[in-house]
Structures are given as C-alpha cells and as structure tokens.
C-alpha cells in the first residue's frame, strides 16, 4: 500500500521518488566531470544525472528558490524568535530601540487569561472544523460518490471546490450576510427572527463556516485514496455479509490510512493557522472566537505589541511542529519500508 498513487496522471510513477536518489553517491562525480565537454554523442548519463548538467549547474539551478525561501520564510521565522524576546512595538520609543526583555513575553503568555482562552478556542476550531467536520464530511462525500457516474462526481467535486477557491474576504461577507440578525437569510429560513448567530454562537458559526469552506480538499484527497482500495476486496466483504461500517473499518481504512493521516496533518495545520475567522467575527464578541491566528493579529498589528506577538507566533510554530511530528510518527509506524516522505500542500 505504502506509496499508492492517486490517479491516472500520477499512476505511472511507482517508487520514482527513491529512484532519483538511490545509488548516486559514486556516479555523481563522473557526471559532473563530463559536463564541460560538448561532445556530440554523449555517453548515456549516469542514473543520478540524467540531464548531464553536473553538480555546479545543478546547484545554480536550486539556488534561487532556496535563497527566496530562506530570506522570506526561514529568516523571518528566526527573526520571530529574536523579536519574541524584545519589547518591540509598532509605535513609540520601543519601536526605535527595542530592548531585550528576555523571556518576559513568554512569561506573560503563560499567565495571560486571553492566551489560554485563545488556545482552547483554537483546539475546538481544529477538532471541530478540520478533524471532525472537513475530514468527516469530505470522506462521506468521497465514499458516497465513489463509483458513481463521472458526470455526477465531477459536478459534486466542482461545487465543493467552488467554496474552496473563493477569496476569504468575499466568503466572509457572504456568511455575515447569511447569518445577519435582522436581514439574515438563515433566520428567514429557520424562522428564527432576531437570532444573532455571530454574537450568540460565534465559535459555532466560525466552525460551520470553515467546514463549508475547507471540505473540498479532504474530499478530493479521499476520492483519490478510495481508488486505491481494490474493488474485489470490498465485493468479498459485502458477499461475506459485512455491514457498511465493517467494510469501512476492516477493508477501507487499512488501505487509506496513509492518505487519511496526510490529510489530517495538512488540514489540522492549515486550520490552526487560518485567520479567516477574523473576517467573520474579528475575534469577538469579547474574544469568544479569538483563535490564535486572530489573537496574533489583534495583539501585534492592531495593538502594536510586535514583540509579544512575535513570542506568540513562535509558540504557534512550536505547536505546529509538535502536531506535525505527531502525525509523521503515526505515518512512519506503518510505512517503515517506504521513505516516509512528508507532503506538501497548498491553499493557505
């Protein structure tokens, strides 16, 4: 099962990942030596250097991307660590000459009631909207549409994707209009005039919103994963009288375990760092929907306390790291044979 590929386009690629890396140690040098010469019939390139570009040029190829990533992703992350131990502010004296205050910011966070609330809300947000909502609903749709006609699947896929590609600021206003107290569509539909959803149930609104918005990715991933479950296994299970739940537990889940974990890892991290709830409720009322990403924005940009904001940012980075390690560990437990390649994802 290890590296079951996803779909037709990726299907022709069994284990290519390791092919490029394997056994190149000795041959790389030979490939590098032959680069300068422009001899017309080149000897077949060694496996590690099929394009015959050689080491210096290969490095030159990779450098621009690395520099960009280092300067605009890694360096800011490191700087966050430094800023986190200063009293740097957006305005005032501390904006010009920030003082190093050691671990004061972290001490403050540990004692900050607002930070605790925010952490707890983020946990609800991730569990409720990502793990239960997006992954659950995404799997349900993928399971129900599996094996149906191409048109139907395409249609459902397209609709779910629609919610996913719309700009956050647009969908936020859409939902504000939908949930509005006086003119809101939901109140008209449910016949509950005057129910202020965003004020009375801010966290619930934000969670439902995020489920609506983010289900597409899980659905697409599970759809692809379900194709790797051999139909004959399901057929056998069904003939043996297994219920749907038994089929899922004993046939499907063992097959898609890797995909499920990958998906959970990605959507957990995305949801954790998602700041779209800000557009819906701005963290209010009274901080009752202030998830960590919104908290940072409120503290750092709106409150001007960049140093404290940076310290919280670093804490978020650490939490992300822990979450990622946890999932990757679970992945590795099963995939000891295949190189446990982590995954990339999109759609921040």
């Amino acid at each position: 099962m290890g590296r079951a590929t996803s779909d037709a386009e990726a299907g022709s690629d069994p284990g290519a990942g390791s092919g490029a890396d394997a056994g190149t140690g000795g041959t790389a040098g030979a490939g590098g030596a032959g680069v300068g010469a422009h001899a017309p019939p080149p000897a077949p390139a060694p496996p590690g250097d099929a394009a015959g570009l050689g080491r210096p040029r290969a490095l030159a190829f990779v450098t621009p991307a690395l520099v960009l990533i280092l300067v605009f992703l890694v360096f800011p992350a490191l700087w966050t660590i430094y800023l986190g131990v200063t009293d740097y502010r957006l305005t005032g004296i501390a904006a010009v000459e920030p003082r190093v205050v050691g671990l004061d910011n972290y001490g403050r966070a540990v004692g900050d009631e607002r930070f605790h609330t925010s952490l707890w809300l983020t946990l609800q947000f991730v569990l409720g909207s990502a793990v239960i909502g997006q992954a659950g609903l995404g799997f349900a749709i993928a399971w129900v549409t599996r094996g149906r006609g191409r048109t139907l699947r395409g249609l459902v896929e397209g609709l779910v994707m629609l919610a996913w590609i719309l700009p956050g600021s647009v969908v936020a206003f859409l939902w504000i209009a939908l949930l509005d107290r006086d003119g809101g569509t939901l109140n008209a539909l449910l016949d509950t005039p005057g129910a202020a959803w965003l004020l009375d149930h801010p966290m619930l609104s934000v969670i439902v919103f995020n489920v609506w918005r983010g289900t597409a990715f899980s659905m697409m991933l599970y759809s692809a994963a379900l194709q790797s479950v051999p139909p004959s296994h399901l057929e056998t299970a069904r003939l043996a009288g297994a219920s749907t739940w038994q089929q899922l537990r004993d046939v499907v889940f063992p097959h898609i375990r890797g995909h499920a974990l990958t998906n959970l890892l990605l959507i957990s991290l995305w949801t954790f760092n998602d700041f779209t709830p800000f557009l819906l409720t701005a963290g209010g009322p009274e901080g009752r929907s202030e998830v960590l990403a919104v908290y940072i924005l409120n503290v750092a940009v709106r409150g001007g306390e960049l140093g404290y904001g940076a310290a919280i940012s670093f804490l978020i980075l650490l939490i992300n790291l822990i979450v990622a390690l946890f999932y990757l560990r679970m992945l590795r437990e099963r995939r000891t044979a295949a190189p446990a390649e982590p995954v990339a994802g999109g759609g921040r």
Binding site: P76, A77, W79, T80, N273, I296, L306, G309, S313
Partner: peptide, 8 residues
Amino acid sequence: PGVSQLVP
C-alpha cells in the same frame, strides 16, 4: 504559519 511571518 503565515501569521507568524507577518511581524518580521
């Protein structure tokens, strides 16, 4: 996380 890059 995108937000944590914001300050720097």
